[in-house]
């Protein structure tokens, strides 16, 4: 089968990088003050996928993370919780137990994360394991090598197969934009993932630089918008890696609002994959509440 057929069917629009960077920069000139800032900061917290994805992860580390997820900063009343925690498949069961009754989802990376270099069989087994342990969300990686070979059908089919294996779990498809090489390819991969049934598209594993950036995210948001305008169906977006400051996170939200609209300003449709963002947001919330600039030592790191 001619592998470029899918590309032709999708007709992904071309992307002008300089124009995207200019547009992305424009969002950062929005000034987010007082009420809007507080509302935005709480929204950011509620959209975080608190993440630990390290080779040295242990049960202890995951337990701490789950506790932190439920108790972001107990001295402030009425804070939202994060949206989910994100762990490797072997910690899903533990995380589920720790988070029981909290309303916080457990997301698991799967499909031979982070490289995606394995057989479909093993990837599906990886997914099934996480799902059977109770994962609410699966974060898969696409096969970038196959993508670069132009085997778009393969990439499409693999995503569709993983989606089928997810059952009730929502599928986030990681494009690993830092390995795709151009914004044109980011757009093409986004379109393939959306067409193959991804519930979310996600920028990065966090293992490759650059990870999430505003221009890359903007291109993916535009893919989501075009799909919505064509089909009326919403797809979620998750930038991951590299977003550690609340000001930047707020600018992402502005970008989501102006590109997709307020409907996407919801943890159901937008997430931040981040580990250190939550504390910076908490510091900002405290600053808004008290008027005093905060120091990191007053906020628990885990």
């Amino acid at each position: 089968m001619n592998q470029s057929q899918i590309a032709r069917v999708f007709k992904s629009p071309v992307i002008d990088q300089v124009g995207v960077v200019e547009r992305a920069k424009r969002f950062t000139t929005r000034s987010i003050k007082s009420e809007a800032k507080m509302q935005g900061l709480e929204m950011v917290l509620s959209m975080i996928d608190l993440t630990t994805l390290e080779g040295m992860d242990t049960e202890g580390k995951v337990k701490q993370l789950c506790y932190k997820a439920q108790h972001l900063h107990d001295s402030i009343d009425g804070l939202p919780t994060v949206a989910a925690i994100c762990v490797y498949p072997n910690f899903v069961g533990l995380a589920k137990r720790c988070l029981a009754g909290s309303g916080i989802n457990v997301a698991s990376v799967a499909t031979a994360f982070p490289s995606g270099n394995s057989s479909l069989e093993i990837k599906l087994a990886d997914v099934s394991m996480a799902v059977s342990e109770g994962a609410d969300e699966i974060d898969m990686v696409i096969s970038r090598g196959r993508f670069h070979r132009g085997e778009y059908n393969f990439v499409f089919d693999e995503i569709a197969a993983v989606k089928a294996a997810c059952g009730e779990a929502r599928l986030k498809t990681i494009l690993e934009t830092g390995e795709l090489g151009s914004l044109d390819k980011v757009r093409l991969a986004s379109d393939i993932a959306i067409a193959a049934g991804a519930d979310f598209i996600k920028t990065s594993t966090g293992k490759i630089q650059p990870a999430a950036t505003m221009p890359v995210t903007l291109v993916m948001l535009e893919a989501i918008r075009d799909h919505f305008q064509k089909t009326g169906l919403m797809v979620g977006m998750k930038p991951a890696g590299g977003i550690s400051k609340s000001k930047l996170a707020l600018h992402y939200l502005i970008m989501v609002k102006e590109t997709l609209g307020d409907a996407w300003l919801d943890p159901k449709w937008f997430r931040f994959g981040a580990s250190s963002l939550a504390n910076d947001v908490l510091m900002q919330i405290e600053k808004q509440r008290t008027g005093a600039y905060q120091a990191a030592n007053y906020f628990a790191i885990d």
Binding site: S31, I32, A36, E42, P80, D262, L265, P267
Partner: peptide, 9 residues
């Protein structure tokens, strides 16, 4: 968290 429209102040 449940948000309504997020308007800039």
């Amino acid at each position: 968290h449940k948000n309504s429209n997020w308007d800039l102040s």
